[in-house]
Design a protein around this nucleic acid. Structure first.
Lengths: 363, 363
DNA sequence: CTGAAAGCGCTTACAG
DNA sequence: CTGAAAGCGCTTACAG
């Protein structure tokens, strides 16, 4: 009864022997001391219950759990954090990908964090700046994060991964190739998805195709475009180098790529753009030339961003289950550290989503 | 020297008299005790420096500040939080607005939080659920948030605001009308922007116009659409009720609204859609009918979402400085509580952004 | 202007 | 299986 917090308590709570505890909530929020006193055990035992220690008698556990529930007790994350020397926060680190991608990732991560006591802290950064890794390091150390999720393109940066390893924080890298130990990777099989796009267009009958890639320095570019070329190759179609345009994942670069490709002879009957923004640019270029989509030109994008459904005709594209990926990433960070590491990285394969921008070419 | 942390320190650090302190970092992170010991004051004085107390001798302050800098010391937010009984986290609470809107808001808020020691925690929720306020309450109380930012539509919910007031957490509501005390409001003058759209279309010469609104239950709908009607009225144009369609802020509702309006006689020569998604739907309906934009139909949207620039022709729309709004919202939450409350709410007026989807009507 | 003591709500290390 | 003591890194309340 010398615990300071007991001063705030009601008389009933102070004299556990006199009357049954009222189900009413305590004034102010209950603490571990309150639960300990009410259940007649030490706070260390309550702590064991909180932390799922096996070293608690089942009956004791039940009693403590019941009281915690009755009083709506949840441990204070700050106090736990101080004692644990780490917080109950997960960081999401990214450098300016699509808004929808970020948001879906956040929803997914939060799906996994719900009711876990963990929360999500967002940290956008500019990976083109020399000192961005310092910024991430400060963020992680200052907040003593429990773990971080890295999404492309920061996920592709080995220097960042090295810095995080030095700090000793756990992380998950979401990328299109296994860049790290399986336990800290979540692979999106962009190559396979690119192949699927190729197979689909070939099966429609297209033989003259164009490809608009992303910037060469991104792994996703290599995988998406490479998979597309693989797929065509397997089906006996060789895409000449001058039917490949390196875009910048922007709308304008999509316009430029399409202008270039549509001026070629023979003109491609189908274009695969490695993201939807560039595919929207292809629409613009095609329409300006009076080419009908999909009548004169089939277009396939990548990402299934909001614009894909809002273009007319609606864009055939590759759908990546981003929310699900976010959920898995957070789950990996929450998983028991003692669990055995997986032998192979978890892998997700995006799927082709056929809409209205693709059909057989003119005979 | 009986502070436990001193055990970890180097001999040099333990004997401040013997040699000048090395600029080298301490093993592990420096704590308030280290800084206190090194500067020869009590940790309470260091605490005063941290908290900008005026009750510190300038020389003392300088010395402490210098040591803090030399050792890269930053106070532990968890420890401060535990002692302060609140955290250094700002919550962003929202219910499924546009991805770009959320992301811009996050960027803006983080602009303001940079180097402040505060971080941003995101909390999407589903305001159509009965118990969503409980979820927010738990989030705020559990994390002992320093403040929260509410964006539409949760910002329009009086019950939520009441619950937050009861908890005693500060909040900023971003909404199109002043729903609360000026100190906790950030108003986007959607009405004025709607009027601007009307003035613009009238000045181009349009006399037969159509309006596609959002759901009636949103304040933004009332303001955007109302402002548009105001603007037309001021210029002597009365929009008949059957030239107004209540949409749902979705692409499909935009299609439906345009199908309806374009079937009318006389056919409107211009349509104002209260968000860009619905405007994209107008494009689809117009194109299906073989109507050229802007030749046969001018279209104005609202939001300046990514799709606006990616449509063809590029969409004339209303641009709201969302990132700036996010920055201001966070600044309000960080501002000194002792500062005098503003007499009028801060107000931001979105601006018309003319692109290629609007021109004079056919003669 | 400065400091010693007690406390915030938890956990670790040790003992039984 | 359980607990008393000390500690995590700060601040409050009090005293001078």
């Amino acid at each position: 009864m010398t615990e300071s917090s007991s001063r705030r308590r009601t008389a009933a709570a102070r004299n556990p022997g006199t009357a049954p505890e009222p189900p009413a909530v305590l004034p102010g929020k209950a603490t571990i001391n309150d639960i300990a006193r009410l259940s007649g055990v030490s706070k260390k035992t309550v702590s064991r219950v909180i932390n799922n220690s096996p070293l608690v008698h089942p009956e004791t556990r039940e009693k403590v759990l019941a009281l915690m529930k009755q009083y709506g007790y949840t441990p204070d994350p700050q106090a736990r954090g101080l004692a644990f020397r780490r917080s109950f926060l997960i960081g999401l680190i990214y450098d300016n990908p699509t808004a929808q991608y970020i948001v879906n990732m956040q929803y997914g991560a939060l799906d996994a964090l719900r009711d876990s006591g963990y929360e999500l802290v967002v940290h956008p950064c500019d990976s083109s700046r020399e000192d961005y890794i310092d910024g991430v390091r400060r963020f992680v150390q200052q907040q003593k994060l429990h773990g971080v999720i890295l999404i492309p393109r920061v996920s592709e940066d080995e220097q960042l991964a090295t810095a995080l390893r030095e700090i000793g924080v756990r992380y998950v890298r979401i990328a299109s190739v296994p860049l790290d130990a399986p336990a800290s990777m979540l692979v999106t099989n962009d190559r396979q998805a690119g192949t699927e796009a190729a197979n689909y267009l070939e099966s429609l009958g297209h033989r003259t195709l164009g490809l608009i890639t992303g910037p060469r320095r991104y792994r996703s570019t290599i995988e998406r475009g490479g998979g597309f070329l693989d797929g065509l190759g397997e089906r006996g179609i060789e895409l000449p180098a001058d039917y490949i345009f390196e875009g910048g994942y922007t709308f304008d670069s999509g316009v430029a790529g399409a202008e270039y490709l549509l001026a070629k002879s023979p003109r491609p009957t189908a274009i695969f753009a490695c993201n939807d923004e560039m595919a929207a640019g292809v629409y613009k270029a095609a329409m300006r030339r009076g080419l009908a989509i999909p009548g004169d030109l089939s277009v396939v994008g990548y990402d299934d961003s909001p614009v894909a459904a809002q273009l007319w005709p609606a864009l055939t594209t590759i759908h990546s289950p981003t929310r699900d990926i976010g959920r898995q990433a957070a789950q990996i960070l929450l998983a028991d550290e003692a669990a055995p590491a997986p032998l192979a990285p978890r892998t997700v394969t995006p799927q082709l989503l056929v809409r209205d921008s693709s059909q057989r070419p003119h005979p």
